[in-house]
Amino acid sequence: MAAITGPTLRRLPKLRQDAGQRKAIVSSMAYHAPTLILSLLMIYPILWMFASSFKVPTDIWKDVSSLIPKQPTLDNYIKGWAGFGGVRFDTFYINSFIYAGGATLFQVVSSAIAAFGFARIRFFGRNFWFTCMLLTLMLPVQVLIIPQYIMFKQLGWINTYLPLLVPRLCGSAFFIFMIMQFIRGLPKELDEAARIDGCGTIGIFFRIILPLIQPAMITAAIFTFYWTWEDFMGPLLYLSNPKTYTLSLALRGFADPGTGTDWGAIFAMASLSLVPVFAIFVFFQRYLVQGISTTGLTGG
């Protein structure tokens, strides 16, 4: 848009151009100033953590409120990266990428398929299964941990990534419901038209619906990646070898309330752990914009 307004404005008579520019600047200021202040407030705590990761450990708590390290140092990163007993953070990174990457791929695809089934096809027992699906979201995992563990142990899956990844092939209730809502926001005439053109149900899903729910799928991908990235409970229960630990689990290895904690290393590694999640968001959010404007959903 911004790219279009530039040349368009230039073609206008000079007087109108000035007024237009002034108005644009005022409107732009009115938008940017409060938004910027609000967003800075939002990220203050993160800046604080980031700044702390460059402070000398003794300064972190002495010089708490300052955002500028007095004696900036990279020691925290070097010490933190060394990890535990020879298992360094590059291992944890790779493990986290496997876990989060695999989970995202599996979960988004399978959720979209199931969501289409629930949203667009009328079949026997649909409401019953939908209710079951929602109910599974309402039971706190804390009481499911042990039965699940026993089950996976019987399958012989303990100490592997299988209990963490295989269930993701079956979608997630949260995302199924979410994508459903997006599909239901699409006019049904699209399906009817496609059907008249000879498209089957599967064809409708792949050719009509899937391209249109791109924003929902991208949103689901961003969330799945992040939620898996930060999940420590699954890895805690099913992985028993530091070489297989994920980043989120390893980060917890630094701190124990009873004993001394290297806060500098925690902040350094916690800051680093945000980088991939942040990058994924920044990368995908572009498509969030594009997805809609290029598909040009014209409706009925």
Binding site: L40, S248, F254, F278
Partner: peptide, 27 residues
């Protein structure tokens, strides 16, 4: 579609990616 909106989105979303780690608690 203003310029810089991508940056704002990232900044507003950023708090949500720090999640529930020990660092958040301290922060």
């Amino acid at each position: 579609d203003r310029r810089g909106v991508g940056i704002y989105r990232a900044m507003f979303y950023a708090p949500s990616i720090v999640g529930g780690s020990v660092a958040v608690a301290v922060m």
